[in-house]
Design a protein around this nucleic acid. Sequence first.
DNA 1: CATCTGACGACCG
DNA 2: GCGGTCGCCAGAT
Length: 114
Amino acid sequence: MSWDPVYRFVQRIPRGSVLTYGALARALRLPGGARSAGRAMAATPSGKGIPWHRVVGERGKILIREPYASLQKKLLESEGVKIVESRVDLRRHLWKPSRKAPLKHKVTRKRTRK
DNA sequence: CATCTGACGACCG
DNA sequence: GCGGTCGCCAGAT
């Protein structure tokens, strides 16, 4: 599975903003929905400047487990994102992707049904 | 090939 | 708001 489109999209999230797995999945039409977004993020290649920490759960909650949860919180706070009870204030930081079709490349997926 | 396991989220009580 | 169940589906075992 090539998650490249996901990573490219995540890289567009501006500093100080966050996106939810669900929104990410919907924006890219990921087969499998939010959970696919989660799988993609779990496989995020490190050292490529991908701001993986800007992706949180539907209600702004940090869903990843330790030790990464702490790192994510730290990274977000360093960008000015306030976190309360492991939760981001989505009303202030949720990023609204531009409606400019971000789907230049479709996410490739294994054929489930032929 | 059979099962299990999630960086999810909708639903329900 | 919280916890449990369920659908989802790629990888790992």
